[in-house]
């Protein structure tokens, strides 16, 4: 019983998160200016990190936690670098 509940909840959550990633990807492809693409990328990596966490819940292994941590770290660094690039035209001055 509880196995069925968790598997169905994880499946619905994964469908929602894939929908969120599709919306972020749409904004990333369509965004009128560069900042909209950066914002879409930011939402995209957050949704991807949450999707990796739900895969970890489904398989019951804690390996996926490290992958999610690495995704969130690299996503933060890349968003900051892209914002810096939009401000100055170069990343390292």
């Amino acid at each position: 019983m509880s196995g069925v509940i968790i598997v169905w909840a994880v499946t619905i959550a994964q469908i929602f998160l894939v929908g969120a990633m599709a919306c972020a990807l749409l904004r990333l492809a369509r965004g009128p200016r560069a900042q909209d693409r950066v914002l879409g990328f930011d939402a995209l990596y957050v949704a991807a990190m949450l999707l990796v966490l739900t895969i970890g819940i489904r398989t019951g292994s804690t390996i996926y936690f490290e992958a999610a941590l690495v995704i969130s770290l690299l996503g933060f660094v890349s968003t900051v670098a892209l914002a810096k690039f939009l401000m100055r035209g170069e990343v390292i001055e």
Binding site: A9, V10, I12, F16, L17, A20, C23, L39, L50
Partner: peptide, 18 residues
């Protein structure tokens, strides 16, 4: 299950708003 669907549903709402 409640927290999973709450979290993913709010993420989907934010992405639709985006």
């Amino acid at each position: 299950g409640f927290f999973l669907i709450l979290g993913s549903g709010l993420t989907l709402l934010g992405a639709i708003g985006l």
